[in-house]
Design a binder for these strands. Structure first.
Lengths: 110, 110
DNA sequence: ACTATATTTCCATAAATATAGAAATATTTC
DNA sequence: GAAATATTTCTATATTTATGGAAATATAGT
């Protein structure tokens, strides 16, 4: 994981609207949701939503796929897991027991 | 986990210098590091470092403890794990098998 | 109380980001 | 090809954030 990438991805979700969007997609699973459905669910105007979707997409946290007139957005789970692993990498100098939950991770390549 | 808190915490580490600082402290373990040691290790001017430490601290991601003339900063692992759990909460509508790694989590209270 | 060390606050400047209406683009159906 | 639906781009404005030098504050030893 590249540091610039991590900063971009964290910045992408460090914003209320985008955090809502991302979590909604994380919970929606691989099929994802159409832009209109997201807009309705979260009550975000189209132009604003479009701006935020582009930010998330540009950061690599979500993917878009066109299907007829709709564009479906879905969470990129591999990217999400990569980011979480980067944050917890080599936690407590490798002593994973120091973390109460299961998030500590050994060092990653890259 | 409160949404505003999550945004504040993500915003705190969505910045190169602060991400470096946070990861350094995550790896340093519970004893933490003195401000001067962080400044030297990461080559960040004192005033700039102080600003960033305050941001991280205010977001609740790190804790400070005074010891003689030094102020030791350390990662708040519970906060970190809470944030990660918030991001992955109810991943894929509860089907944790959809995530390749071990980050998916069931819904949390709050 | 003087000196040295550690850290923070003050300040001004520079840069990045969020918002949403209106217009534009793309796709499907008739 | 016109009408309807879905989404994006353009635009302007308002707000937030990052940087580091210089001065201020705090703690410890002599």
């Amino acid at each position: 994981m590249d540091k610039k990438t991590a900063v971009a991805q964290l910045g992408a979700i460090a914003q209320e609207a985008r955090l809502d969007i991302f979590r909604l997609l994380v919970q929606a699973g691989t099929p994802g949701l159409a832009a209109g459905a997201i807009s309705e669910t979260l009550n975000i105007p189209n132009s604003t939503l479009s701006f935020h979707l582009k930010e998330l997409s540009h950061a690599g946290l979500i993917a878009a796929r066109q299907e007829s007139r709709f564009i479906y957005y879905s969470a990129d789970y591999a990217a999400m897991n990569g980011l979480l692993a980067y944050l917890t990498e080599n936690c407590c100098a490798g002593d994973t027991a120091c973390c109460p939950d299961s998030y500590c991770s050994p060092p990653q390549k890259g």
